[in-house]
Structure formats: C-alpha cells, structure tokens
Computed example of a mutant assay.
Amino acid sequence: MTRRFGPPPSAADFEALAQAAFARIPDPFAGHLDGITVHVEEFADEETLRALEIEDPFALTGLYHGRSMDLDSVWTSGELPPRVTLYRQPLLAEWCETEVALEDLVTHVVIHEIGHHFGLSDAQMHALEDEAR
C-alpha cells in the first residue's frame, strides 16, 4: 500500500496482505501451511509481552502460536490450530517510521513467523535472510 492521507489500513487490510504473503510462499513450504490461520490484533496483550520479556508493545509486530512441525506428532491432540498474529499498531508505526512498503513489512513478518512453524529459530531465520541478500 502506498502512503496516502486518509484512514490507516484496517485489520481486514492487514489480513488481506497476510493472505497474499501466504500465497507467495513457494513449494515445498507451501504444502505444509494448511490450517494455519491469520489474526490481526492492535497490540500483544500484557501476558504475551511478559512471557516474551518485551517491555515496549511496539517492539512486537507478529507472533507464531502453535507447535512447530519438528515437534508435531500424530499423538498430539486437543490443541488449537497454529496461527500467526499480526500486531497492527506496531506495524503501522514501523511503516510510518521507515521507507518500507506496508506489503513488504507484512510479508517479512508473515514469513518470519512461518519460519517458526518449520522449527527455525530467530537466529536461523536471520542467517537465511542475510544469505538471501
């Protein structure tokens, strides 16, 4: 989305951007994304921030909730399906503070959080991103 005057992108706009990012994830990864849902919230709640030891609610733009594929088992039951939560206000703030397009920010966060679905650590994802540059 280009920057323009008017209302900021809505939660529905963020969800559409996230779904577009999911659609661009290539095989073989794309074949393992069934059932992952996307949610948009304004900010992470206090409990989440405490658990992640984050003081500034603007510091968290997205979060993966669920068991990673490397830990999943046919014996696991009773859990909610995996999901990616995008935090709208922190993403809007980053969009306003940087020259990065909102689609690119959302795509970056979605792909980062999907990396957790595959069992990648933050360090591994950063290393892969560095190699891709």
Rank of each mutant, 00 (worst) to 15 (best):
W95A: 04
P82R: 10
E113A: 06
L52I: 09
A51Q: 13
E46G: 03
V100D: 06
H108S: 14
L120N: 10
V106F: 07
C96T: 02
D130R: 15
L102V: 12
E131T: 09
L49N: 07
F58D: 03
Y64E: 02
D34R: 15
C96S: 12
V100Q: 13
H112N: 08
F118N: 08
P81M: 01
I111F: 09
L60G: 04
E42V: 05
D34P: 03
E94Y: 02
V40P: 01
S73P: 08
T37M: 07
F43H: 15
A123V: 14
V100K: 09
V38R: 03
R83N: 05
A59L: 09
F118C: 10
E79F: 13
S77K: 10
W75M: 11
A132G: 00
G35I: 04
H126Y: 10
A44V: 09
G115K: 02
W95I: 05
R67D: 00
D45F: 11
P81C: 00
R83I: 00
P81S: 10
E129Y: 12
A123C: 02
D56K: 03
E55T: 10
H108A: 13
T48I: 13
F58K: 00
L63E: 11
E53A: 15
V106T: 11
W95L: 08
L71G: 11
T107S: 15
E47M: 06
G78T: 08
P90S: 05
S77P: 06
A44C: 06
